[in-house]
Computed example of a mutant assay.
Amino acid sequence: MSQANAAAGVDYQLMNPWKRMMRGLADSTRRLPFDRRKMFITEDGTWSYLGDQPYREFAILESQGHKTLFAEMMYRLTNDARYFAGMGFDTLMMTEYDLLRRGALPFAYLLGVGASADAWFNDERRIRVIVESFRHACEASRAALLTGDSPALPYLVKPSAPSLPVPDAAVFFGSGIGIIAPPERMVRDRGIDQGSQIIGVASQGYHTNGSSPIIRNLPTLSEGLLHVLPDNRCLGEHLLVPTPSYADLVEALIKECEIFAIKPLTGDGAAKMARDRAPWQFTYRIRRWPAPTAFWSFLRAWLADCGVTTKDFYETFNAGIGMVFIVPERMVDRALAVGRRIGHELMHLGHVEYGPRRVILEHESGVELAPSGE
């Protein structure tokens, strides 16, 4: 071990518990008894396609964002490591969603975790929960964890929470590899036309997008993350609900329905519906939306008091819909039935029409949303 590194805050002895657990996790996910889209993964992390049809591979890189900071804050407030139980889902599902957007079904992930201190990797209670979270996320997504990297970056990663400083934190990011077989199943945002229908699948909380305005405004709540909502759960619990996998749902929809486009409501929130590659412009008219849960009702009212408008809210958060599917009108009933069979709550939200590239929320008195760059 380098004494110079240890003296500078990068002690590999402290980081070894995490590295051992993650190597064990990678080995176990390569042996999981499920069909990895007919991909055979070897012990050294290489893979071969065992199917009998042409295929394409698709790769993506994503980060989890600031959500891990809420887990660190709740850990400090309660001394309960269970608040890290969603970290694996929140990291890998952001990658999964961008794979699914093109119709690529995940079969492998690569993980990066950069911590603010070497000691972060030596907290066994924390890292055991996180490692198990990644195991469950791999199982849900039906993909293996191939490898990863976990540096201590004490001079680069500096956690900052205005309402409750945390001593250490980590940045989670990952890359995913998916398969499209046959290649004709790739979803290219083609075929969208006037009369195409919009179907949404319910989200589970805010997933990961929108953490920054929540962190910024948290000091306005006297109890911070421990603020209790009408359902008797605190804000911190709601914010740390794991991001769900939609892989099985998308796989079934692609096989059984005609899908023009798949749009995860990340980044620009509900406004992301209007981001498409069509050669002409469309308006996405929303007639229905899920009834707000206790979490969404509180979040919207609280942030409104902090100056966040209805337009800003929908351009930041998924607001109850995690992903939308653009389908021909004749496919609506079939898609809803597929969702029920798979165990996801799907809703017919509205339709597409010719017009400026925007989203119109009729259930919000006609509020208009524009995707970033418009």
Rank of each mutant, 00 (worst) to 15 (best):
A81F: 02
C306A: 15
Y246S: 12
I41V: 09
G9I: 02
S212R: 15
Y314C: 09
D149G: 14
R20M: 07
I179M: 07
T95H: 01
R101T: 12
L146H: 04
V338G: 04
F260P: 00
G320A: 07
M15S: 05
A85L: 10
M15H: 01
F34G: 08
D44P: 01
S222G: 11
L239V: 08
S141F: 06
A26Y: 03
E364G: 03
V359T: 08
A143N: 02
G51A: 07
P159V: 06
P230Y: 07
L226C: 10
G195K: 07
K255G: 11
H351I: 07
L221D: 09
R334K: 15
D305C: 08
H66T: 09
S203C: 03
L110P: 00
L336R: 11
D189K: 11
E251F: 08
A252I: 01
Y55S: 09
F121K: 00
R31K: 14
P371L: 05
M39F: 04
P54R: 11
R102I: 04
L105I: 15
L50F: 10
D44R: 14
E139M: 11
E57C: 12
R287L: 15
D52K: 14
I262C: 11
M74P: 07
A7R: 14
F107C: 10
N232A: 13
V338M: 12
F34D: 12
T147R: 10
R76H: 11
I342P: 08
A104Y: 05
G148M: 06
I60A: 04
A26R: 00
E329G: 05
F173I: 09
A115M: 05
K263L: 06
F58T: 06
D98M: 13
E364Y: 02
D193S: 14
V308C: 02
I199M: 02
R185A: 07
S28V: 11
L153W: 14
W120S: 03
V131M: 06
A144T: 07
M186N: 08
M22Y: 04
Q13M: 07
V157E: 08
L361A: 12
N79H: 15
F295C: 00
D98R: 11
S163G: 13
T42D: 14
E258L: 06
L253T: 04
F298T: 07
R341F: 03
G320C: 04
T243F: 09
H66A: 15
A140N: 08
R357N: 13
C234P: 05
V367E: 12
P33E: 06
C257S: 14
T42A: 09
V166G: 03
